[in-house]
Design a protein around this nucleic acid. Structure first.
Length: 487
RNA sequence: GCGGAGUUAGUUUAGCCUGGUAGGACGUCAGCUUCCCAAGCUGAAGGUCGCGGGUUCAAAUCCCGCACUCCGCACCA
């Protein structure tokens, strides 16, 4: 049975996955959440899987950039101008509306959202527009930018918390390419925090003001998008793609042949991404790559596929895959005066960029929801995480404390704890301790009993099947290592 | 930001209408039981009753403001 949002958040709060930030204070703001010990364990293991399946598999570089970036970066990127909504506010009831949408709907006039604010005001007064709720009059149009501004140093020089991690990658590209012996196509990856001043953050990890992204920017020669060495690795990988019609399940190879995906280059990365998510334990049958229409795409995107997964809250966008063309490098080159062109063989090119922008928090939520189940037959709640993602790999338990079992258990624990995430527990009924381990997703439990004293064997209990088998203490290390290994 | 519903221990919830010592269940901890799947028994800890103000001799309870959470609208990874 699949669990709902309420069950997931209850588990998160009770078992240390995540909880609200600053919760002891009344002025705690919405949209900020913290990961507890279990959440950090899951997140770290998830990111290790991401590195294995994408970064290392494709021989990408990984960087770690500043979260605060200077104003010029966002002038060049377009965020100062485009990452802001024109809004109008009713002077009487205080209701706020998107100025461009309101004008399009009531006055039938289309003004681009990036237009000068005076244009909005002009139409509003010409058409005599009033608040649809209370008929009050509108104040002047304003721009609400979703970037958090910060002041640097005593003079408070303007800068911003980055609204997406990738700007570091674009800005760093010339140095990385020169010093790290770059060749196209070159993937540069980054994990880090981004910040967006959402108007209405909601649903814990699903819409945050401060959130984690794992982004990959692949720099490529736009004239060689059909020339992908390792395409054969994923050409038979099946993915679900939705365009205007119903989703279709086809292989990456077929998707390119039929033109659903524009080229092998994009198909290759969608294939890698699908293989990665399959290994997170998310139910891949409930996923789709949805090709975005013109109006849905971000302002910098040429072609965009969102990787979406069905959860109890509806379809949830986990990854945005955007073909950003030369938008970013061209603008940073113009603004900075730096050269961003590189040699690809004999050819001098300004690389294009394909981006795989993953929302980590949303991914972790989805993993939890898809992994959590209620086992009515055995009256237990089980978090069936993939073993390699579990915050606790193995619980080490003494069946009873006396007769030297406690001491023996401590020995086994000491033997294991540097090699994996082991959790020692001596107290309470054995069944209760197994249930507790089930809830944090520990795939294995080792129990020291009376027979252990006689023959140096322990029982190894499997979370999902509840089956037990006896294992020699001398073999525990290798048995556990095999069972919790990354695929 | 708007509209609606909420906020009492780690979780879930009673008490609020009708103001007067905040209570249960689960969980946690300790002990007994020496035991392989939330058993039982004994005991304990754990509460700024979301925050601030007002009314009152007295506020979890009545009034006002704010914050947060959830559901819709709009926006997004």
């Amino acid at each position: 049975m699949m669990m709902d949002y309420e069950s997931v958040i209850k588990l998160a709060l009770e078992r240390g996955f995540y909880f609200p930030s600053c919760e002891v204070y009344a002025d705690a703001q919405a949209g900020f959440w913290e990961y507890g010990p279990s959440g950090v364990g899951l997140k770290n293991k998830f990111l290790e899987l991401w590195r294995r399946e994408l970064v290392r598999r494709d021989a990408m570089m990984e960087i770690d950039g500043s979260q605060i970036m200077s104003e010029s970066v966002f002038e060049a990127s377009g965020h100062l101008e485009n990452f802001a909504d024109p809004i109008i506010k009713c002077t009487k009831c205080g209701a706020t509306f998107r100025a461009d949408r309101m004008i399009a709907e009531t006055a039938g006039v289309n003004i681009p959202e990036g237009a000068d604010l005076a244009e909005f005001d002009k139409i509003i007064s010409e058409k005599g527009m009033a608040c649809p709720k209370c008929k009050g009059s509108f104040g002047g149009a304003k721009r609400f930018n979703m970037m958090f501004g910060v002041g640097i140093g005593p003079e408070g020089v303007g800068a911003y918390l980055r609204p997406e991690t990738c700007q570091s990658i674009f800005v760093d590209f010339p140095r990385l390419y020169k010093t790290m012996r770059g060749r196209l196509p070159l993937g540069v990856a980054q994990v880090g925090k981004s910040f967006r001043n959402e108007i209405a953050p909601r649903q814990s990890l699903l819409r945050l003001r401060e959130f984690y992204q794992a982004e990959i920017e692949v720099f490529c020669n736009p004239s060689r998008l059909g020339d992908v060495d390792r395409f054969s690795e994923i050409q038979d990988t099946s993915i679900r793609i939705q365009t205007e019609a119903d989703p279709v399940l086809i292989t990456c190879g077929q998707a390119v042949d039929s033109g659903i995906i524009p080229n092998k280059f994009v198909a290759y990365y969608l294939g890698l991404l699908a293989e990665f998510y399959e290994k997170t334990g998310i139910d891949i049958r409930k996923s789709r790559f949805r090709r975005l229409g013109e109006k849905e795409k971000a302002f910098y995107a040429d072609v965009a596929f969102d990787f979406e997964v069905e959860t109890s809250t509806g379809w949830l966008e986990l990854v945005a895959c955007n073909y950003r063309s030369d938008y970013d490098l061209l603008n940073h080159a113009k603004k900075s005066g730096e050269k961003f062109e590189v040699m690809d063989g004999e050819e001098k090119v300004l690389p294009h960029v394909f981006e795989i922008s993953m929302g980590i928090d949303r991914s972790l939520y989805t993993i939890l929801e898809h992994s959590l189940r209620r086992d009515e037959k055995n009256d237990r709640t089980v978090l069936s995480l993939r073993p390699y993602l579990s915050p606790v790999h193995v619980g080490v338990l003494s069946l009873v404390k006396k007769d030297g079992l406690k001491e023996k258990t401590d020995e086994v624990y000491l033997q294991l704890r540097k090699k994996c995430d082991a959790f020692l527990d001596h107290s309470g009924a054995i069944g209760r301790r197994y249930r507790r381990l089930d809830e944090v997703g520990a795939p294995l439990a080792i129990t020291v009993d009376h027979q252990t004293i006689k023959d140096n064997t322990v029982t190894l209990r499997m979370r999902d099947s509840m089956e037990q088998k006896r294992v020699k203490i001398s073999e525990i290390d290798s048995v556990v290592a095999t069972l919790i290994a990354y695929p």
